[in-house]
């Protein structure tokens, strides 16, 4: 896997409420350039919301987001999102477009590439995820694992500095999980800065550089995989790990 121009991402004291429900209550997360941070925790702990706040799909009520040490809250949010790729649990490929068009759409419309150039770039990107031969298929004719790899190619095509994965393997049939995790591992080893919200404890433990355990909208513990998985300090993390492992 090629080298990436990655950035360092920092979230500082992020607060967010939906009505009276305080979803995020002062979250700090620091992801050093070229490293992978995994975020684990029970459902409803605010992990997915945190990702959406960090690329400003949802605006935080309080706190700051820094990319390469500079606050991005005053930037145009659309431009920020071009620098951060995101992969979703439900893939969210565009069903009315071919696989190649899914990948080339943003290149044409946002990067101003010609149709031919964008297709060429898209094919190269699809080749990296092993799906060049599916370029002219529709997403509905692909398996879940293939769809998720296309979604990863679509995000990578924009040459992002950071990649977000929101439970990218949770909707996949068990036998398809491995292919997607292998691709994510390649990206991590290639030096991409990644934030991975996941229920795959194996990935979290073996691939990520740091692990953050969230519960109830706060960071309960954060540290190296060894620390969190072998010597959890809090009862909450101990309980969570005994539930999922």
């Amino acid at each position: 896997m090629s080298e990436f121009v990655s950035g360092t991402l920092t979230a500082k004291n992020i607060h967010l409420s939906f009505g009276s429900n305080r979803v995020l209550r002062g979250i700090d997360l620091h992801v050093e350039k070229g490293t992978t941070a995994s975020v684990i925790g029970p459902s409803g702990s605010g992990k997915s919301t945190l990702l959406r706040v960090m690329n400003r799909l949802i605006e935080p009520e309080q706190g700051d987001i820094l990319l390469d040490g500079r606050s991005v809250l005053k930037d145009n949010p659309d431009e920020l999102r071009r620098r951060i790729g995101m992969v979703f649990q439900q893939f969210n490929l565009f069903p009315h477009k071919t696989v190649a068009e899914n990948v080339s759409l943003a290149l044409r419309k946002l990067r101003g590439m010609s149709k031919e150039q964008a297709r060429e770039d898209a094919l190269a990107q699809l080749d990296l995820v092993g799906l060049k031969h599916k370029a002219d298929a529709r997403p509905a004719n692909l398996s879940g694992g293939q769809q998720q790899r296309v979604a990863i190619a679509r995000a990578l095509a924009m040459k992002p500095e950071v990649m977000f994965f929101d439970e990218a393997t949770s909707a996949l049939d068990p036998e398809l999980v491995k292919g997607v995790l292998a691709l994510m591992t390649d990206l991590a080893k290639g030096g991409m800065t990644m934030v991975v919200v996941t229920h795959e404890m194996g990935f979290s433990r073996n691939v990520s550089d740091t692990v953050t355990f969230m519960d109830g909208g706060v960071v309960v513990e954060t540290g190296s995989p060894e620390q969190l998985f072998t010597e959890p300090r809090t009862e909450r993390l101990k309980g969570f790990l005994s539930d999922v492992l």
Binding site: N55, L57, D78, E79, R81, R82, I84, G85, M86, F88, Q90, N92, L93, F94, P95, H96, L105, A106, K109, L110, A151, R154, A155, M158
Partner: peptide
């Protein structure tokens, strides 16, 4: 599906272009 708008915006499209290029064509179809 709401995920369509979210995924389009995550790529860096504004609300208008995301609706025009991705959401509305699917809805009309």
């Amino acid at each position: 599906d709401k995920g369509q708008l979210e995924a389009t915006r995550a790529l860096g499209f504004g609300y208008g272009p995301a609706m025009r290029l991705v959401v509305v064509p699917q809805g009309v179809r």
